[in-house]
Computed example of a mutant assay.
Amino acid sequence: MKCALIVDDHPVIRGAVKILLKLEGYKRIHEAASGNEVLPMIREYKPELVILDLNIPSLDGLDVLARIKAGEVPCRVVVFTSQEPMFYQDRCMRAGASAYVAKTNDLQHLHKAIHAALGGYTYFTRLPTSSVSMSTLQRSEKQMIDKLSDRELSIFQHLARGISNKAIAEIMHLSHKTVSTYKTRLTEKLNVESSVHLRDLARRNHLI
């Protein structure tokens, strides 16, 4: 019997995806609202398909993808997220995802991505790379952001949203000191002088 796992912390999104999966003939559909639930549920239910959001509590989606890949779990992962594809799609591809669908698209794209993934194919958006479509500033900022590790990128977004070091430490299960170290490293790597500049950089690149 076909089995799927939906990972998203928004019940309305999970509900919409569940309806789509039922139309695809799925009888066993499980739901998770946080990253730390995913691996235990995959081991228990053995879903052939995982629909994964990236911006989830406890373990973010990139961490979950890395753990699925490291565990050599035999399931297809379709990323369904509001995160900017320009900065996240390639990371997800490298981490083993079969497809990447932005939540700004209608569910027809998710439908196509699921069919591609289960058929052994991939489904990714063609991203703008030409000099015509990106300004010099955008290209140089994208290059800096692309060099960040997955964890640095996550902390960058949290900081840009104005979340305190202490709160980030709790969200990501890190020490306050570790988050402070990451913050210092980010200001150096991204060539910014303050949290205000971090936020401006994130906004310009549609990361918040």
Rank of each mutant, 00 (worst) to 15 (best):
I145E: 02
K27R: 15
Q143N: 12
P11G: 05
I42T: 11
A95H: 02
I163H: 07
D8F: 03
N55A: 11
H176M: 00
T187C: 02
Q89S: 11
E24G: 02
Y88F: 14
S164G: 11
P47N: 08
V77P: 01
V7N: 00
L207K: 02
K18I: 03
I171M: 07
T122K: 12
G15T: 08
S195F: 04
A167S: 07
K46L: 10
F156L: 05
A117M: 01
S149E: 11
Y182A: 06
V79C: 05
N205P: 15
I68N: 00
A33V: 12
R28D: 14
F80H: 13
R204I: 04
M172W: 02
L20R: 06
P57M: 08
I6E: 00
N205W: 01
L65E: 11
H115L: 06
Q108V: 10
K189M: 05
Y123D: 06
Y26S: 07
E44T: 13
C75M: 09
L186N: 03
P57C: 12
S133P: 03
A117Q: 05
G162F: 00
I51K: 00
R67A: 06
L49M: 05
G35I: 02
K177F: 06
V101F: 01
R28K: 10
G71P: 11
P47M: 11
Q138Y: 08
T181D: 09
P85Y: 00
H158E: 10
C92Q: 04
T178V: 10
V78E: 05
L49K: 04
S194M: 05
L186I: 14
F124C: 13
A116N: 12
R43A: 15
F156P: 01
R94P: 05
V132W: 07
L49D: 07
I19N: 15
P74F: 00
K112N: 10
S58C: 03
M41G: 06
S164H: 12
K166Y: 11
L153I: 12
K147I: 06
G162N: 04
S154G: 09
R91P: 07
N165P: 10
I56A: 08
